[in-house]
Every structure is written in C-alpha cells, then in structure tokens.
Design a protein around this nucleic acid. Sequence first.
DNA 1: AGTTGACCTGGAGCGCACTCCAGGTCGTAC
DNA 2: GTACGACCTGGAGTGCGCTCCAGGTCAACT
Lengths: 133, 133
Amino acid sequence: MSYSIAEAARRSGLSIDTLRYYERIKLVEPPARDAAGRRAYSDDDLGWLGFLTKLRLTGMPIKRMREYASLRHHGAASAGRRKSILVDQRTSVADRIAELQACLDILDYKIDHYDQVERKVLGTGATMEGISA
Amino acid sequence: MSYSIAEAARRSGLSIDTLRYYERIKLVEPPARDAAGRRAYSDDDLGWLGFLTKLRLTGMPIKRMREYASLRHHGAASAGRRKSILVDQRTSVADRIAELQACLDILDYKIDHYDQVERKVLGTGATMEGISA
DNA sequence: AGTTGACCTGGAGCGCACTCCAGGTCGTAC
DNA sequence: GTACGACCTGGAGTGCGCTCCAGGTCAACT
C-alpha cells in the first residue's frame, strides 16, 4: 500500500509540515513519488515514522535520531552503535520516569495540603472565597 | 540566612542568568538587596525556587508557573485555583509516566532484537564488523 | 474552460526557555 | 590607589522543533 502525505500524517500523528521537515533534515528517506510527483509513503515508511515518533516521545533530540537513522544505511556493521544509542536512551527514559515519579509525590503532598486547608475551612462553616486577604 | 545570587544558583541548580530571568518574568518575587544593591535570597526564596524547579521538571510551561506564582499573592481565596493547577499537572505527569513506560517497553523490545542479532552472529563465529554490507 | 483542492518548493517566522554580552558599580585584597 | 572578582542593568542572541507562507503545478469535477 502507499499513502498520500495527508494520510501518512493522519496515521503517524505528525503534521504534513513535519513530515516534509523530517525529510529535509534527513530523518526519513525521501518517499517514492506518484506520477504527478506527489509523495507516496510505503508501509515501511510508516513503520519508521512510527518508531521515530516513539523516540521523539522519549525526548530523544533530533540530532541523535538522525544519527540512528543514518546508521540504518550502514548495514549490520552499525548494529552495535545503534544498540548503544537505544540502551543509552533506555537509561535516560528510566531516569526520567524516576524523576517524574518523585515530582508526582511532591504534587500529591501539596495537593493533600490544599485538601486539608479546604477541610479546615469547611469545618468552620466558612467558604474558600470568604477567607480572602 | 541570606544568600548571594551565586549561592542561590548553586543551591537551586538554576544558573545565575536564569535566576535573574525568572525575576524579570515575575516567576519569583524580587529578592531583598544588601547594602551594595546585590540580591540577597532568603530561605523562603530558595524554598519557592525549589518548588519551581520541581514544577519545571514536570514540564509545566512557564506561563502556568507564572499563573500559579501570581495566585500566591491573592491569599487563601486563590487556593482552589492553585489546587486545580496542581491536580491538572498531576494528571499530565501521570499520563507522561505511562507514555514513557510504553516507550520503555518498545526500547526493550528493540534492544532485545539487537541482542538476538549479536548472539546469532557470535554463534557463527563472525564479528559485528565482519557482517557489514 | 474554469474552479477547486491537494500537493509541491524554498525560505521565512515563531514560541519557548534560556544564555550571552557590553558597559558599569561595588567592596575587598594587595 | 588600583587591581580584581562578584555583582548589576537592559537588551540582543541562541537552539530547538516545528509552523507558516507565497507562488506554483496538477488532476478531477461541473
């Protein structure tokens, strides 16, 4: 199957502009073109776009995605380097999850504090608005 | 206790420039000044900076941090709105953690794939470099 | 034949969150 | 008294990741 740029955008969740941008910066191979010169994305193209969007979600900078992308064209010899990029990213994602978890705890603590304030106010029969300075 | 901007930067993990920037954009109250006109941060200032850095780690945009910051000056009447900002942020952090967890699974899957390729290569006595295209 | 709508290109512009700079003022150390 | 280092100000510059625009081509519909 092949897909118009609009369809590829819809399926990948990227914008049409972003798809063209990714092509310009060599993050994706130029897709095939139809008779009229319009981009025709293959299922493989979409698969790669799907993986790219995952890497992007992990916060990988475009520079490193480009490196990974270019290594794919260097065959199996580049597998070690590609794996190490993924392993590094795995570490950074795990760290980030831990960091966010810690922030979540702080947010919960603060929210709990607001809950307590609310309960206290209700206990006195006052309203939140009533105790404005 | 009061702290020079350099000390406040060290303790908050922000840069000196960022501290002045946060002041300019009203994310922090202008700290006290010493006799020579230099900023003198209080423990309270540092506490607020600490919380701000946590909010920043959660990915909260500066706009919303500013809103939260400004609400603090509106007394208890703003507690409801402040709480709802934190609750919203809690949701977005939890979502983000789930998203990252899903990415982690994909990375693990891919890394496992590279591991298998390596093992296969080792089984044939070849090296990663030896199978370059 | 004309209009519409999707697509094309190269290039400019944008929002965010800083980061850097020039030129100046202090207070302390030599 | 002068050299130094930390600090000050207002404003300009940076890097990232898009996003938008003008002006043009092409195929299909009416």
